[in-house]
Amino acid sequence: MKKFLLTVSYLIFTVNLFAQVAQEAPKNHEDSLKVGWWDPRSTQLGINFSQAGFNDAWSGAQGSVGSIGLGLLFNNKAVYHKNKGVFSSDMQFQYGTVKNKGQDPRKSIDRIFIDVKYASKLTSTTNWFAGVNFLSQFAPGFAYDAKGVKGNKIGNLFAPGFLAEGVGLEWKPVKYFVMQLGGATLRQTFVSDDVVFVNTQKEVTEDGKKVFRSYGVEKGKKVLNEMGFQVVAAFDKDIAKNLNLKWRYQGFVAYAPKTKPIDHNISVVATAKVNKYLNVNFTLIGVYDADIVKKFQLSEGLAVGFLFTI
């Protein structure tokens, strides 16, 4: 965990230092093509609160319980242009907890998302690209029973974790929307925590043999390597005054070492600014991965908090 945080901190520091140096050089359009320039960079730090309270009469009649929640977020986005090439990095870290009265505290959201990409123009709206993205969580996650009592550990950092590297074509008709088609994409699924593996393993039959897998990773291994086809669509725009909408869809179809159903990953974030620092945000995350559960998993949250832009 410490190594991961140090690596991320170093990457952010390096990107921003490089940006400061690069921004000082260009004096005109011709120079900017040679030296390069950065789009306005955005680093956001946020803290969100949620709370619900009921007196004994309400709780008894309506069956409601009080709760308190706390959420933290960190976003960093950088885009660098030089000649026909564009380098971009997008980091989104979110972590939140909620405590219902009479129950153990649990995570409300836990997400690590890092996307790094280089693209070069073929036409005014079409690029070829090469990119890497990573998805996982920060802290251990647990199963809970109907009464909210904590049970077995079923998730952790790199358990699961998903790393994908791909090359392909992207279509970007406007600045706030892009669609990518990655015809050659490698994906690694990690389950590095043995306890998580034991608690989430499932017995499946493959080629007449019974094997145990957790998040698709076979027993005795830490990583599942797959090759497939990936499609990504992303949107990020202020759709009204003080209202930003950001959504991203990522689909992956594995065709080696075997063909599998398509995996879907959707994230939607709508942020409304009340004033310079106070905001209201809505988050929706949807996941379908047959290796985890053959159902579409949904998580949504609405919170009020403070957002600081650096």
Rank of each mutant, 00 (worst) to 15 (best):
M1V: 14
M1L: 08
L6C: 10
Y10W: 10
I12A: 12
T14P: 04
L17D: 12
Q23H: 08
E24K: 01
P26E: 15
H29G: 08
S32A: 15
K34A: 11
W37H: 08
D39M: 02
L45V: 06
N48S: 12
N48Q: 14
Q51D: 07
G53S: 14
F54E: 13
D56P: 00
G66T: 05
S67Y: 01
G71T: 03
G71I: 04
K77V: 06
A78F: 09
V79Y: 02
K84R: 07
D90I: 01
Q92V: 06
Q92M: 09
Q92F: 13
F93C: 05
V98I: 14
K99H: 12
K101H: 14
D115E: 14
Y118K: 04
T125D: 15
N127K: 10
N133K: 03
N133Y: 11
N133S: 06
L135N: 12
F138C: 04
F138Y: 06
P140N: 07
P140A: 05
F142C: 04
A146V: 15
N152D: 15
N156C: 01
F162W: 08
F162K: 10
L163T: 15
P173C: 12
K175A: 15
Y176M: 09
F177I: 13
F177K: 00
G182H: 04
G183C: 08
R187I: 08
Q188D: 10
V191W: 08
S192Q: 02
V195A: 13
V196G: 06
N199K: 00
Q201F: 05
E203P: 02
T205V: 14
E206C: 03
G208W: 13
K209E: 15
R213Q: 10
S214K: 03
V217H: 02
E218H: 01
K221H: 05
K221W: 05
M227Y: 15
G228V: 03
A233T: 05
A233Q: 03
F235A: 02
D238T: 14
D238V: 13
D238H: 10
A240R: 00
L243F: 11
W247E: 01
G251H: 03
T259R: 01
I262C: 06
D263L: 06
D263P: 02
V269S: 11
A270G: 02
A270P: 00
A272S: 07
A272M: 14
K273G: 15
Y277A: 03
Y277R: 07
L278I: 13
N281C: 03
F282D: 08
T283M: 10
G286R: 02
V287R: 03
Y288M: 01
Y288G: 12
D289C: 02
A290Y: 11
D291W: 00
F296T: 08
F296Y: 06
Q297A: 05
G301L: 00
G301K: 00
L307D: 09
F308I: 14
T309P: 01
T309S: 04
